[in-house]
């Protein structure tokens, strides 16, 4: 049996994805401390987990150091790496939307958009035929309209609570996001059996 290396995003998605693998019948260590360890072995299944930053998962998979990985569609849209998107896992459901202060219009001359997702934001506004300036931030995007850095933000919305707490309202929904199982194109061919088995088992869990 070929060894399978799976790149997993640290944090929220990890727990949901790991749960899904356990439910799918994989014999994995029950408790794992994902706070410090970067590599976790599951010798019974000949699986090795790499714990990475969510944005880095497609990079590991593209280069083939991880055979498969779990990544949010937001990350896939933003990074545009050549990986195979095999399955919609239906977990960590949320969406990307534009938001801003209530009852405001965008600046007519140089509307400014703050976001962690410059490519997605740029694609969206271009698609609408609007020319905007994108300001890339790394977190706490909600600050930008509050202190006058940007007219709108483009960000992930899961419950809308963060927006509300900061006095922002949602304007347009851009795209629905869930986590996806992705594969390296070469591993997909060379470890076909194992990857197909994984897709099959996970698909059953996703359906139920």
């Amino acid at each position: 049996m070929d060894e399978l290396t799976i790149a997993m995003p640290k944090g929220r998605i990890f727990e949901e994805a790991y749960e899904l693998l356990l439910k799918a019948g994989y014999d994995l260590p029950k408790e794992i401390d994902d706070s410090r360890k970067l590599i976790v072995e599951a010798p019974n299944e000949r699986i090795r987990f790499i714990l990475a930053k969510p944005m880095d998962v497609p990079v590991y998979v593209e280069h083939g150091v991880a055979d498969v990985g779990i990544a949010g569609k937001d990350v896939l849209l933003e990074l545009d790496r050549s990986v195979h998107e095999l399955l919609d896992l239906g977990i960590s459901r949320c969406y990307i939307a534009t938001a801003g202060l209530p009852n405001t219009e965008m600046n007519a001359v140089t509307p400014r958009i703050a976001t962690k997702y410059p490519k997605i934001a740029s694609r969206f506004y271009r698609g609408k035929g609007e020319q905007v300036e994108i300001i890339e931030l790394n977190g706490s995007i909600e600050l930008a309209p509050m202190i006058g850095l940007a007219d709108r933000i483009v960000d992930i919305v899961s419950t809308g609570k963060t927006l509300k707490e900061n006095g922002l309202v949602e304007y347009e929904e851009i795209v629905d996001i869930t986590s996806r199982l992705i594969a390296n194109p070469v591993s997909y061919r060379l470890k076909q059996e194992r990857i197909r088995e994984l897709v099959g088992k996970l698909r059953e869990q996703v359906r139920t």
Partner: peptide
């Protein structure tokens, strides 16, 4: 071309 099974489905 991009082997996007999800998109294909």
């Amino acid at each position: 071309v991009s082997k996007n099974n999800v998109g294909f489905d």
